[in-house]
């Protein structure tokens, strides 16, 4: 089942993707020594993330700029059973124009858009249609999202269907049982095949960290997925009891840094679920800047998986412009 890194897609089409600013991670052979050597000291990690918000605060114009940046990093998401094509078109309209034009003008900013729109497979086509003419990619959650327990061939086929439907990013879910039972080879093989099935589309590996039991498992799973060629590693489906947290983010960012230092390949990071406040977004960006550096603060290497974060950022931006606290109804909904 294990595929060779060379067989992966390096077509010109991949290089032409709007979000691509660096060479894709080709993956590498599974290095179990490296995986087993991963350590994660929970208490120390929690101390670091607890202290960080107080160590780094961003104020005034800087804060406005950071919040605007955060918007461009959002995977604007709808993953509901009652999603319809119309609902997705509305969301896409918001994705193209996430902030009121008068606010952008007051801030001296040109037009911005979100990082991507993230939907279920059935919504890919309407989303792609609605975003035509923009540089906004459509991401599809896949592989039996959120539990990842549908028949394996169907999961692989699901990826192919979504890519065919026009998704240029695929958010796959890993089999948590491979992590929990320590079957790293199985995780690697699965990820490798998912990646191959994506072809030119970028693949984000959702680890469902809330179900992996320990931070050490998060570190190991991160590394195995990167070795198998993940373009992004992502915390959660948003459907677990515990989704993105700062300690999990620190562990995954450090794994990304290690992987980059050793292989020279940059892998992106996507925290998802539970990030709904502008203030939280600033803390995540500060952690990103501290641990991975400025290069990662771009949509090709970082995304927020969020549905309600944008609304709070809009209110904060209006407060920045007017000096008065804002209200939700003043901002167009998605």
């Amino acid at each position: 089942m294990q595929s060779d890194p060379q067989t992966l897609d390096h077509s010109p089409a991949a290089a032409a993707l709007p979000q691509l600013g660096h060479a894709r991670n080709p993956g590498m052979a599974l290095d179990m020594d490296w995986v087993r050597a991963q350590q994660a000291n929970t208490s120390a990690i929690e101390r670091r993330t607890a202290a960080l918000p107080a160590r780094r605060s961003v104020k005034k114009d800087h804060q406005a700029a950071w919040l605007l940046k955060a918007i461009t990093l959002i995977d604007l998401t709808t993953l509901s059973g009652d999603d319809t094509a119309e609902r997705v078109r509305r969301l896409c309209a918001k994705a193209r124009q996430p902030v009121r034009a008068d606010l952008l003008a007051a801030l001296g900013m040109g037009p911005i858009h979100v990082g991507a729109v993230c939907v279920y497979h059935e919504m890919v086509e309407p989303a792609v249609a609605a975003l035509e003419g923009t540089a906004i990619p459509v991401a599809a959650v896949s592989t039996g999202f959120p539990a990842g327990l549908s028949p394996y061939p169907l999961r692989v086929q699901e990826i192919r269907e979504s890519v065919k439907a026009g998704a240029s990013e695929i958010d796959i879910v890993i089999s948590r049982r491979h992590v929990l039972s320590g079957d790293w080879q199985a995780l690697y093989d699965e990820m490798r095949e998912f990646r191959a099935a994506c072809g030119a589309a970028h693949v984000k590996a959702i680890l469902a960290t809330g179900e992996l039991g320990t931070l050490r498992n998060v570190a190991r799973a991160s590394l195995v997925c990167m070795m198998a060629g993940a373009d992004f590693i992502k915390t959660s489906t948003g459907k677990e009891t515990v989704n993105a947290t700062l300690p999990v983010s620190l562990v995954m960012m450090r794994a990304i840094r290690d992987y980059w230092e050793r292989t020279g390949h940059r892998v992106g990071y996507k925290p998802a679920g539970g990030i709904s406040k502008a203030k939280d977004a600033l803390v995540y960006l500060a952690l990103l800047k501290e641990e991975l550096g400025d290069r990662w603060m771009q949509p090709d290497l970082f995304r927020f998986g969020a549905s309600s974060l944008l609304g709070d950022i809009e209110r904060q931006l209006e407060h920045h412009v007017t000096g008065q606290y804002s209200a939700a109804y003043r901002h167009p909904m998605g």
Binding site: R56, V58, D61, H62, A64, A65, W66, L68, K69, L107, G108, M109, G110, L285, A286, K289, D294, M297
Partner: peptide
């Protein structure tokens, strides 16, 4: 703000 959006300084 536009410049800070690019530099992402603290």
């Amino acid at each position: 703000v536009k410049e800070l959006f690019e530099t992402m300084e603290y």
